[in-house]
Design a protein around this nucleic acid. Structure first.
Length: 370
RNA sequence: GGGUCGAUUGCAGAGUGGUCAAAUGCUCGAGACUGUAAAUCUCGCGGUUUAUACCUUCGUAGGUUCGAAUCCUACUCGGCCCA
């Protein structure tokens, strides 16, 4: 805090794994946080973790990540920058820099690596919860997984940063950077963690939970997914993902707590603000109108994807429109009343469609026959 | 290298010769109720032109058997212990 207040221009960064072709809302929080620093005149680095991404962060203990080649990484990160620009400024006088950590990590020799690793102990590593968990369950822990925090930590050294931004699940990895920076450059590096977007039960909103918001998504989808979030995230969502003034957020959180408003209304505000941030105000309005119309009033949306099926029977249409993954599934869904044609629930499996018919599956899936 | 245990449908995890497309929980999908919230409830969750049917699936490849996820052999991969 002292250094922050000193007026010194700090160099800070946040890393992003290029594992998907789009940033998601969780990344948006980080980008948003960085943008606040940028506005205060600090130097901001948007780091693409093309090297660390290859290792795969064990923090989410899912299966090994897909390895990407150079070209894919560049492709992905191009989208990243574009999406991040919804919050961050990559143009102006204090523009954010984009860097790739393979730039320096590729060059680290085995000898260097050993040197770097000597700053950490095995005990530090295995003390982490998810490793303890795996030890208890007799699941494998691979040696290279220990290197993830090391590699991430080395980024701090290579860029000689003062500050790193990340989710509070990244605390460990970021502190590794702090230790290294101290040991190698003899400099204090600070870390700022933000809360993760999660509801009261601690369920995260993310990829693995199936309700992730990708910034590449269409306005109406972003809006819709946010509306399906649980109520518990409204307050924190406003706080982390929007650029609304702090006072207003506080006030909203307060009224929410006292049950003075229908949480839905505030959630609509949240959905609107995020959509606006990503796609602009006009698109956000359209998305909101669309939502009110199709979901709240259960009307058929204005814009529907069209499909020219190879055969015009309902089964083929459902499969080809990717509404269901197989004909068996289509049969089940129809049997349970999940398919409507022109607003009429159907039960007949052999219905033949004609051009202009509108098929609906579930609440949100629409397709128009061409 | 030796010993030992293991690999099952998205995940976890039962099943150890026919009753197995394979328990159960979670996830997921549809429906009811709603605010596309949560909670709750119902149904479903390998595939196939209707199915008391067939096909594919229980790490891989062979074998035994009327019949194998289950038994045998080899291989691959992994955990643990010993070295």
């Amino acid at each position: 805090k002292k250094e922050l207040m000193s007026g010194k221009r700090l160099r800070l960064y946040c890393g992003f794994d290029p594992s998907a072709d789009s940033l998601h809302i969780g990344n948006a929080i980080q980008v948003n946080k960085m943008s606040q620093f940028q506005e205060l005149g600090h130097e901001v680095i948007f780091l693409v973790g093309d090297f660390t991404g290859m290792i795969g962060d064990p923090t989410d203990k899912a299966a090994a990540r897909k390895k990407l080649n150079r070209k894919e990484v560049l492709e992905n990160s191009k989208h990243y920058q574009e999406q991040a620009s919804a919050y961050l400024d990559f143009e102006g006088s204090n523009k954010a820099l984009v860097k790739y950590n393979s730039e320096w990590s590729d060059k680290v020799s085995f000898k260097d690596l050993i040197e770097i690793c000597s700053n950490f102990t095995v005990q530090q590593m295995i003390q982490r919860d998810m490793f303890q968990e795996r030890i208890k369950k007799e699941k494998p822990i691979y040696l290279h997984e220990f290197l993830y925090p090391v590699a991430q930590g080395y980024d701090s050294v290579a860029m000689d940063v003062d500050l790193e931004v990340g989710g509070n699940d990244q605390m460990f990895n970021m502190l590794a950077g702090r230790d290294l920076q101290k040991a190698i450059n003899n400099k204090e590096k600070y870390v700022i963690t933000h809360k993760l977007i999660a509801d009261d039960e601690g369920n995260k909103m993310g990829k693995s939970e199936g309700n992730a918001v990708f910034l590449s998504a269409k306005p109406k989808d972003i809006y819709g997914i946010i509306m399906s979030w649980s109520d518990g995230v409204i307050g924190i969502g406003l706080e982390l993902c929007t650029k609304l003034p702090w006072d207003e957020i506080k006030k909203d959180q307060e009224t929410l707590k006292q049950n003075k408003v229908n949480p839905r209304d505030l959630k609509m505000k949240l959905a609107f603000e995020i959509t606006k941030q990503v796609h602009g105000e006009n698109k956000a309005k359209e998305a909101q109108d669309n939502f009110i119309k199709t979901i709240q009033r259960k009307e058929i949306p204005d814009e529907i994807n069209e499909l020219k099926p190879s055969v015009y029977d309902i089964m083929t249409v459902l499969v080809e429109a990717k509404a269901v993954s197989s004909k068996s599934e289509g049969r089940r869904v129809i049997a349970q009343g999940g398919v409507k044609i022109n607003k009429e629930k159907i039960s007949d499996l052999d219905i033949v469609l004609k051009a202009g018919d509108i098929v609906q599956k579930g609440k949100v899936f629409f397709v128009k026959i061409k």
